[in-house]
Design a protein around this nucleic acid. Structure first.
Lengths: 189, 189
DNA sequence: CGTTGTCAAATGAATATTCATTCAATAGGC
DNA sequence: GCCTATTGAATGAATATTCATTTGACAACG
């Protein structure tokens, strides 16, 4: 028999929710599908999470935790940092989709994720430090540079189908080089 | 009394649909709200468009038509082109939202928008031509450069709430300069 | 001029389904 | 036996879609 394990069930539900929300967003997600994917009833979702929105929020927090662990910033080699972000998007396309749904759909009154804010502040500080050490040009504003790197890394995930036609034959290595080259150009002294 | 004017009513419905879909996406949009905003009954939407998905598609086509007319590419001054795109996003934030919903939600089996594909090809050709005339460095691949410019222009619309905290005090002029400077750095010989 | 026939535009009230959420009842492990 | 996890069957509110009917414009006709 299956032995009961509430923590494992909770994790299963979060995993299933991540996949469902990444695919369909909040409005398009179906609690039934999430429950079925986690091998339980829809009712159990409410025992654990209370509501669809709360489940989305829990899934988001879990995703942030995972994402922040991978891809630590390497301020001495920002092109490679962007490349690592690119790798993350390629290997886990559902992450970018989920984050996009989050930006579009989540309740703006909800408190923003504290870990994400702290991590952003850390990255900006790391860039400032690299400037002080002379490995990055002084004229760049750290927060702006960081924002630009994040955006550039996602250039291929954000491409429209219409644009995709123009680059259909690109290999993954090609796409990665486009990202790292762009960041290299940005930080050229 | 209100005189009947089917073309005007159709345009009203498309306008209302654009606003509703930009705000809530396909799954979150409500036909009732669209009909009310266009001063007609929900049934009329089906007389004109047949289904929610078809209405979304019609709204998308209309948006593309509008967007392509504004912001013609200026290959001799790409930083300013990016600035113009930035202006468009700032003045019409619903456009970026709508396009994002489109990327996430629209049926991949639907035929891509031919005008958008043609326009992309035109822009790439314009960049190639500028390279031939010597106003742009040869080492850049036109399609890649175009994709990068489009992505960079949208850097602020794609910023997460968490990142937004780091740049809350930025003025619009600041944000625009970040965009144009980045494109200038990209095309530096 | 009025009357009337015709057709498209438009309505509003069903229809029928989908879905989040609740809850009383059951089962598992200690 | 007791506590918690879990179920599965309601519930009830939305909501997309259909359709029989009404309304408005317009032109043919007397």
């Amino acid at each position: 028999m299956v032995t009961r394990d509430p923590d494992a069930k909770r994790r299963q539900l979060v995993q299933a929710a991540l996949a469902e929300f990444a695919a369909h967003g909040i409005a398009g997600a179906r609690i039934d599908r999430i429950a079925k994917a986690a091998n339980c009833s829809a009712g159990l979702v409410y025992t654990y999470f209370g509501s669809k929105d709360d489940l989305f929020s829990a899934a988001f927090d879990s995703l942030i935790e995972t994402v922040l662990e991978e891809a630590p910033i390497t301020p001495d080699d920002l092109p490679e940092y962007a490349g690592k972000l690119f790798d993350g998007y390629e290997d886990h396309p559902e992450v970018a989709r989920f984050l996009t749904w989050h930006r579009l759909e989540s309740d703006p009154d909800r408190a923003p994720n504290a870990a994400a804010i702290a991590s952003t502040a850390d990255k900006i500080a790391a860039i400032e430090d690299a400037q002080r050490r002379g490995v990055l040009p002084e004229h760049l504003v750290p927060a702006e540079l960081l924002g630009m790197i994040l955006q550039i890394s996602a250039v291929w995930t954000a491409a429209t189908p219409e644009f995709g036609e123009a680059v259909a034959q690109y290999t993954r290595a090609d796409r990665r080089r486009v990202v790292t080259d762009a960041v290299a150009a940005l930080i050229r002294p």
